[in-house]
């Protein structure tokens, strides 16, 4: 399922003294089955944009086509259930929304809500409990007895359990330890590769370089760039001008370049950096 925004604007509190533009003439198309990173500063419009994906917010102007729905300012709030089953949003600190008595019941809530039977929901819950890296032994425990990192995984499992076609996550790995972070991102990548669309809101440029194939850059409610990670990170002065960082490997390559060692290719990841350095050293030996 692709996502298309056509000239979408959103105004908060229109007509009041607090009127503020959240989105300003945003147009783009995200291909089905892509891994898209959504980056930009706090207040750039990322969250506003994200809330349009399943019509939590509806455009003040313009139109969105997503999962078979067309959403504009006249779209009624009725009959959106199928859209919300297909397009799921995971907000920051999703663990604050856990509420059930047991871990399994919490994960099964989403599937049950979207029409799966009690048994099917339980089966899906067990499957995703394991997929997010938790042990079956926690299934019958209260989610509130577990560590923050475990609670985060449970909350994410609860959304992935009904297997939405489009999954959009806002900083899902913030505060997780490095291994936990990697495991979660690998899980989202695997989810994409098994035929879903993933949208990741993040400040971490290494995650953009390592996992995304498509990047949306927001600033002041406008989409200021839509390109591949290679294209976005190619222009260091553009990044600096917009207060955006580079992946760590790219910064390292810049330091090498400043001291006179220019690599032949643009590098964004540790692996690319290693290969480019190796090529340089091998070429020297020959």
């Amino acid at each position: 399922m692709s996502i298309e925004f056509k000239n979408v604007s959103y105004i908060y509190s229109p007509g009041s003294p607090l009127e503020q533009k959240g989105l300003d003439q945003v147009s783009f198309k995200i291909k089905e089955n892509s891994f898209t990173a959504l980056i930009g500063h706090t207040g750039s419009g990322k969250s506003t944009l994200m809330q349009h994906f399943n019509a939590l917010l509806k455009p003040t102007e313009g139109e969105i086509t997503i999962a078979g729905y067309t959403i504009n300012k006249d779209t009624s709030n009725k009959n959106l259930k199928q859209l919300r089953k297909n397009v799921s949003l995971v907000f920051q600190f999703p663990e604050s929304q856990l509420f059930e008595n047991t871990v399994l019941a919490d994960i099964a809530f989403g599937p049950k809500n979207f029409g799966y039977s009690e048994d099917e929901a339980k089966e899906l819950a067990l499957k995703w409990l394991k997929k997010v890296g938790l042990d079956e032994t926690v299934a019958e425990r209260s989610p509130f007895e577990l560590s923050g990192g475990q609670m985060r995984r449970i909350a994410i499992a609860g959304v992935m359990a009904y297997e939405p076609a489009i999954l959009c996550l806002d900083e899902p790995a913030a505060g997780l330890d490095p291994r936990g972070r990697k495991e979660m991102l690998e899980l989202f990548k695997e989810y994409q590769e098994s035929g879903h669309t993933v949208i990741l809101v993040t400040h971490n440029m290494d995650d953009v370089a390592d996992y995304a194939d498509d990047v949306l850059v927001m600033e002041g409610g406008k989409l200021i760039k839509h390109a591949t990670p290679k294209e976005v990170f190619a222009d260091a002065s553009w990044l600096t001008a917009h207060h955006l960082g580079s992946p760590t490997a790219a910064k390292f390559a810049q330091k090498l370049a400043q001291k006179g060692l220019q690599l032949d290719d643009e590098v964004l990841t540790l692996n690319e950096l290693t290969q480019a350095l190796k090529a340089k050293m091998k070429a020297g030996e020959a």
Binding site: F252, K255, L256, K259, G260, L261, L277, K280, M281, A283, G284, E285
Partner: peptide, 15 residues
């Protein structure tokens, strides 16, 4: 990091 950058640059310039 500085030592590594310098080392790699020296290695490269010797070649």
């Amino acid at each position: 990091e500085e030592e590594l950058v310098n080392y790699l640059c020296q290695l490269n310039s010797k070649m």
